[in-house]
């Protein structure tokens, strides 16, 4: 579960994120929708503890995030680079060992398979993977790490239609498993397809929060234009 209360971040005189509040519950996918410079990436960095906030509070799975206290969340950046010279099994092992844990190969293979990566790819180097396949490895991390929260930055950027559909399936499966998923995007179509709720971000402020269940892309676009236009 991700809880954001009055989150504020200033760069000099400019306020990048202004008293932002929202909550992403278990089994929910929340999309932060906004144009370039709206403050989406800054918001994600604040939630992940990568930036120090000037005000407000972030709690991930009930634990406050702050300086030196990172959230136990899986982060899938826009460019999912991972380590090109390792295979997916080794990648999961590496992430687990950084946390001081060892996970059996069978468990890692199971997580990868459940994330949608076929067994024939488990011993190929990640450097040869498409972005969609790398995203699957990143989502498998959530299971291996035992994370209940997932943060994705522009996950559909650069994906072909098939890969986008597969991502939607994986996210739906993760949701069904009870994960709280926060995703930033500027793509109205994907936001409408994937999200349960959509927060519209404009100049660092949350100008609207919509229930996207059953809302089609055209309706979401109209709402977005109404609030952000």
């Amino acid at each position: 579960m991700i809880e954001v209360r009055g989150l504020t971040k200033r760069y000099g005189a400019r306020t990048a994120v202004d008293a932002l509040s929202f909550t992403v519950g278990p089994g929910e996918l929340y999309a932060l929708l906004g144009g370039n410079g709206a403050g989406k990436t800054t918001t994600l960095n604040l939630i992940l503890g990568l930036l120090a906030a000037d005000g407000g509070e972030v709690r991930v799975d009930g634990v406050a995030v702050g300086p030196g206290a990172r959230p136990c969340a899986v982060y899938v950046p826009e460019v999912v680079a991972l380590y090109p010279d390792l295979d997916p099994l080794e990648t999961l092992a590496l992430f687990a060992s950084v946390a001081g844990r060892t996970v059996s190969e069978a468990d890692r293979a199971g997580a990868l398979t459940r994330a949608g990566l076929a067994a024939e790819h488990h011993h190929r180097r990640v450097g040869t993977f498409s972005k969609g396949m790398r995203q699957k490895v990143a989502l498998a991390l959530a299971e291996v790490q035992g994370a209940r929260s997932v943060v994705l930055d522009e996950p559909t950027s650069g994906l072909d239609p098939l890969a986008s559909a597969q991502l939607a399936e994986r996210l739906a499966a993760a949701k069904a498993g009870g994960a709280a998923i926060l995703m930033s995007t500027h793509d109205v179509l994907h936001a409408a397809n994937l999200a349960d709720r959509v927060g519209i971000l404009q100049a660092g402020r949350l100008v609207a929060e919509l229930d996207a269940t059953g809302m089609d892309a055209a309706a979401l676009l109209a709402a977005y234009q109404a609030h952000a236009g």
Binding site: L48, G49, L50, R70, P71, C72, A73, V74, Y75, V76, P77, F95, V98, A99, G100, R101, A138, L141, Q145, A147
Partner: peptide
Amino acid sequence: AALLAFAP
């Protein structure tokens, strides 16, 4: 961030 999320 992803690497260190679960590391003490």
